[in-house]
Amino acid sequence: MEIYDLLSKKRNSIIDKCFDLTISTYPEQSRIFLRERKRQFTNPVGYTLYHGIERIIDKIIAQESLENFIPPLEEIIRVRAVQDFIPSEAVGFIFLIKEAIYSLIYKEAKYNELMDLLSRIDSLALLAFDIFMKYREKIYDMKARELRDRTWWILKKYNIISEIDDSILEK
């Protein structure tokens, strides 16, 4: 289909636009810093977002199957799942990808092809939500497990170790 040729021609500007839009969901004061996407170790968030988006766009262009999108989506969503976002914000960057693609190619693309592409991107949003839930659940799982793994807690239950209680305090 012609639209994918069009996409691959505009690959770099699409990626940059997606990245800029995604960065714009962060507080203004940190944006300049996050936009610095080359410092892999001293700016891991900017780096991860950029490369996740890059891989997603490439997979869209290559028309890969849905499950191939899981790794790059996980990269991004795993970061956003522990940041200061509500669920809709955390996964909503998919719509920013859609917006970026639309705004850059709508003039040249055929209507039917464009509609088809955009509705395919919608399915990524559903996938993203599944991934978000997976990592949120992982957080809660880790919270619960940590409580269990901290053996002292169990030992305390069995009266092997003790806690300050009121009777000790009174002495």
């Binding site: 969901t25 203004e28 004061q29 909503g92 920013l96 917006e99």
Partner: peptide
């Protein structure tokens, strides 16, 4: 509202930052 309007805090509903 469109999804991108809903989630984008900046581009569309620009308020002076506090």
């Amino acid at each position: 509202p469109r999804p991108e309007e809903l989630i984008s805090t900046v581009n569309l509903k620009k308020t002076p930052p506090k």
